[in-house]
Structures are given as C-alpha cells and as structure tokens.
C-alpha cells in the first residue's frame, strides 16, 4: 500500500476552468484505487466505471458549480484552492473559496417526486459521499470524503 499523498491545485474559479478541476479529481480517484493506468490512454472522455470515481467526480462537479454560481456569482477574479488527500482506498477533497458563505444545514432536500429542475446538487453530493462538511470562512471550506468499498472502514470513534 502506498503512503498517502497530497495534490494541490490553485486555479481561477470559473466555468471555463471547471473541466480542468474535474479532470484532476477523476485522475486522483484512479490513484486512490491504485489503478496503474487509465483503461485507454488515448481516450479524451471520462472513464467512470467505478462507483468510487463516479461518486467523487459527481459530487465535486456539483460543489464546483455551487461555488462558481452562488458563492462567487460568476465573478471573474475568483480563485479556488483544491487539496486532494489520496489515502489508501480513500480520497478527501478540501475546497477553499473566498466567496459568499451559506448555511449548509438550511439547504432543503429536493422533492424528487416533483421532478425538480434545480436544487439537486447538494443532494447528489450528500448521497454519494461518506462525508460532506462545510465551514464558512473566509475562506469557506468544503471537505468531501469517499472511501472505496474494498477498503477497510475507519476505526470506530465510539
């Protein structure tokens, strides 16, 4: 098992830079699963067969959208800091922004029976990850964690 490693990215925070950040998270997922190489190095598309990758990439994309659209209101001088802690069989994302903070606990769950056309992003993140934490700043801090199913559960805190 390889030792934990940390990847950092500081980037402009805009929809133009979204794919760059999502791609980074997708590649970090492969590292966390200790996959030797992408299935097809030549493929420009995403290769999201593993539920672990699916969960993290989906959740990160939604949080990124929230930061660009709501925290920063599409401000052009916005930046985002992403720290990816690639542990053995798990991955933790810390995302920092200096936009407008909000109350995570006040965000309602969407009524899926009503076929909503909005308000689904946080639901996706919460449902797919093991941990979604938010600390208002500045900087605001999101902490997203997912453990791979084949990994041992963390020690009990009880």
């Amino acid at each position: 098992m390889s030792a934990a490693s940390v990847i950092r990215l500081t980037s402009p925070c805009s929809l133009r830079h979204r794919a760059l950040a999502v791609r980074l998270v997708a590649e970090a997922c492969r590292l966390a699963r200790d996959e030797q190489a992408p299935r097809d190095e030549r493929s420009a598309g995403y290769d999201l067969h593993d539920p672990f990758d699916t969960a993290l990439v989906s959740a990160f994309g939604e949080i990124y959208n929230n930061i660009v659209l709501h925290a920063y209101g599409r401000r052009e001088d916005a930046t985002i800091e992403i720290v990816i802690d690639v542990g053995p069989g798990s991955l933790t994302l810390e995302i920092r922004d200096t936009g407008i903070a909000f109350d995570l606990g006040a965000v309602p769950e969407p009524d899926l029976d009503a076929l909503p056309e909005g308000g689904m992003g946080l639901h996706i993140a919460r449902a797919m990850l093991d941990e979604v934490a938010y600390e208002p700043g500045p900087p605001n801090l999101w902490r997203l964690t997912k453990r791979h199913e084949s990994a041992s559960p963390p020690p009990s805190t009880r």
Binding site: G45, E62, G121
Partner: peptide
Amino acid sequence: LDLIDSSGVAALVALYK
C-alpha cells in the same frame, strides 16, 4: 454519454415536462 451533472439532468427534465 460519459458524464452528466444536475444542470444536464435539469435539461432532460425540462424536455420531459
């Protein structure tokens, strides 16, 4: 389709509705 987010889902829901 390789990847969708909630905005993409919203577009398909809009088509459906």
